[in-house]
Design a protein around this nucleic acid. Sequence first.
RNA 1: GGAGAGAUGUCCGAGUUGGUUUAAGGAGCUGGUCUUGAAAACCAGUGUGCCUUUACGGGUACCUAGGGUUCGAAUCCCUAUCUCUCCGCCA
Length: 419
Amino acid sequence: MLDIQKIRQTPDEVAAALAKRGYEVDFADFLGLDAKRKEIISEVESLKAERNSVSREIPQIKKQGGDASELLSKMKTVSDRIKELDEAQKTVETEIHDFIAGLPNLPDEDVVAGGKENNEVVSVYGEMPEFDFEFKDHVDLATSLGLIDYERGAKLGGNGFWLYTGVGAKIEWALLNYFITEHIKDGYEFILPPHMLNYECGYTAGQFPKFKEDVFKLETGNFMLPTSETALVNLYRDEILSEDDLPKRLFSYTPCYRREAGSYRSDERGMIRGHQFNKVEMFAFTKPEESDALHKELIEKACRLVEGLGLHYRLSKLAAGDVSASMATTYDIEVYLPSMGIYKEVSSISNARDYQARRGMMRFKREGSKKTEYIHTLNGSGLATSRVLPAILEQFQNADGSVNVPNPLQAFLGTDVIK
RNA sequence: GGAGAGAUGUCCGAGUUGGUUUAAGGAGCUGGUCUUGAAAACCAGUGUGCCUUUACGGGUACCUAGGGUUCGAAUCCCUAUCUCUCCGCCA
């Protein structure tokens, strides 16, 4: 949610910032509604003030044996008018709210305009792997090594589901363990949240109302979380924290459930894009002046995890149009997949600034201050396995079809090579 | 799944035959007095949103949420959510 004051005061600047995303907006209607709202409020509140004072007089009059019937009937009409105005106010406020809630976040000033094509590679780690043999893609490797069963996965869950078997399940679990252990070492608090969340959670995260169709809905009205960010961001919803509570550094592990309706591409074989994948998520709540530093910290943490595995990857700063709606700035970590000849995202590390905090009324108070301020929220995958595992299989494969196990996973697996 | 009880300000807790409660009392917290210092005692203050105001301030809404009745609702009615107790079922 954007700052409504900012829109009132500098609508052109806000529109220009949103235009960097390719999002066009006209604030004329909004400004009209906003003025109408104030008009209604000042009328209805003075009527309510009158009603309150008269309602206090009535029992006095009755007590003294006076006749209040004239006042009562007069107040009846006032009361009816109040009801009308209350209704009108609610209508206007709903319109305003729906409009504001639909607006994406403002990209940071240093985020360039345009879409994906304007993303900027900031750094590259490692060397692009070269093979002096006919290399396989991760689907062939995972199948031939017995790590993943795609056919039975589809039998159980349908298209877009797979199952990890035997050593495959162990690698998956080893990866998650590796990530979790590193976050614990860094002093982050481990959270295991519910996987089924209520509407409010999706709204605060910024997924609702616009992206309702992307999640699995349940009979209860809850939905399956598409990322544990959706859960974590709601931890302090409607709360006012004290300055000492911040920053909060958290992480969680959950599967992520996504409809991904119609978004399959033929080149996305295997576990590149599914309805369910495992992800460890980092999350932080900070004071505004500390969020840039925390963002950097999260990026470095995610990079270290990929480097620990020895994978060749690059770090990109996203252009405005590629930054998701709730975020002000995002860096992507992309690992190289030899079979596709491209880099695929394994982590998105973003600063939402106060956008989510406004939606979920997450605030804090500084020592000695009466004013409440909005918290900044940050999130980043740390990491999602569904693209790390394919990258490991493809980048570390040998001519005989075996795959070398990255260092951090060897102890858990009890081997340095999968045959 | 069945039956019952409950949800009040930072916390505890009173108020539920509708009108000096526009929320008592206590604790906590902040400031002050006193004190060498601290404690105790005493005094004062202590929520959030919105409207209005240069400012001081004023107004309004909020007793889980949403509706309803009424001149007037924490209090009465309806619905939802959550919590607790008992029974049943169950990993």
